[in-house]
């Protein structure tokens, strides 16, 4: 009797949790996204009396910018979620692994040395830089089990090293430094529909690819040995998922520069809100990433208007303390 009623109670709690998670995923997050998008659309440094100018500002400048914020944020959220799942490391993220820095270096080279090349080149070049960095990281860690400490320390060292290259490039090309700097700190300033069309196809291809990996990620979380025994080709799957994650991060870096910590925070909040089933966690992480970048950009535009700050400063302002908080939580290692 007792046992049965306890079991029933457990079931009820579990169902309540599941409904709450579904609500979060299908209602709360989308509504929050729409609200922030509208807020972004109608808030800005200039108020216009001229209806035409207002129309231009809203539909041409702000709308494009919002779309980019959504896509770039979602790509970073997905990327972080894939990486954290595949190496079972809660402190992994594209920027903490040096992958974002790798994309930055490659894009900066293109930016400064080949300014004549078209925008479409930026993404493939950034992807190349990011993949090369991932390769280097995996080479450095080839005898390790990719534990949190080693990965984060090696990633950060790699990141600093690559950032030094970027700085060197910037200093040696002073005439273009300003534009490159604004882009590098993670800004959505001056981005328009051009960038949207460059970004969108990549996103549309890689979003479904990521979602297809959801169940494999669920199994990988159980450990390599269990996953392999349950029929997952661990080595191949891990490589493919890392590839997806790196491309998504690189695409976002190519368009917006480095938006620090979004790829770290979004998956954490997603797991907190919708649990560990990746078919829920991945879309939730994408939405939270989009929300974070959108809000960061809104603050960046409006807080000190008409002066505009890079959105990356705001994500770092929120992200770094959150990272420190996580470090204190994972004391085990």
């Amino acid at each position: 009797m007792m046992k049965a009623s306890v079991a029933r109670q457990n079931r009820a709690t579990r169902q309540a949790i599941l409904t709450r998670q579904t609500m979060m995923l299908s209602l709360v997050l989308p509504i929050l996204l729409c609200l922030s998008a509208f807020a972004s659309l109608y808030m800005g440094s200039l108020s216009f009396s001229d209806a035409l100018a207002l129309d231009f500002i809203i539909s041409d400048l702000r709308l494009a910018r919002i779309v980019i914020a959504l896509l770039a944020g979602a790509a970073l959220g997905l990327s972080g979620c894939l990486i954290q799942g595949v190496i079972r490391n809660p402190l992994a993220a594209p920027d903490l692994m040096g992958v974002s820095a790798g994309a930055s270096v490659a894009a900066t080279v293109l930016f400064l040395l080949f300014p004549a090349l078209s925008l479409g080149w930026l993404i493939p070049v950034a992807i190349f830089g990011a993949l090369a960095t991932l390769g280097l990281l995996l080479l450095l860690l080839r005898h390790s089990n990719l534990g949190p400490t080693q990965l984060v320390l090696t990633g950060i060292a790699l990141s600093i090293w690559l950032t030094a290259f970027t700085d060197w490039l910037l200093v040696s090309h002073p005439q273009q430094t300003n534009a490159a700097l604004v882009w590098l700190t993670g800004s959505l300033w001056g981005r328009g529909w051009n960038q949207v069309w460059v970004l969108l196809p990549w996103f549309l291809v890689f979003l479904p690819c990521s979602l297809m990996m959801a169940f494999k990620l669920d199994l990988l979380v159980l450990g390599d040995e269990t996953a392999q025994s349950l029929g997952v080709d661990v080595v191949k799957t891990r490589r493919w998922i890392l590839f997806l994650a790196v491309v998504l991060a690189a695409v976002s870096v190519a368009v917006c520069g480095t938006l620090s910590f979004v790829g770290l925070i979004a998956p954490h909040l997603a797991r907190l809100l919708v649990g560990g089933d990746h078919l829920r966690t991945l879309p939730a992480a994408a939405m939270i990433g989009a929300l974070l970048v959108l809000i960061a950009d809104l603050f960046a535009r409006t807080l000190f208007a008409p002066l505009e700050l890079p959105a990356g400063i705001f994500t770092a302002l929120i992200g770094a303390p959150y990272f420190l908080f996580l470090l204190t939580r994972y004391r085990g290692w």
């Binding site: 079972r88 979380v221 159980l222 450990g223 269990t226 025994s229 649990g275 560990g276």
Partner: peptide, 14 residues
């Protein structure tokens, strides 16, 4: 063939 590893990882929230 099924394998129960020595230290299987118990995931949270499952």
């Amino acid at each position: 063939i099924a394998l129960l590893p020595q230290a299987p990882i118990s995931p949270e929230g499952i």
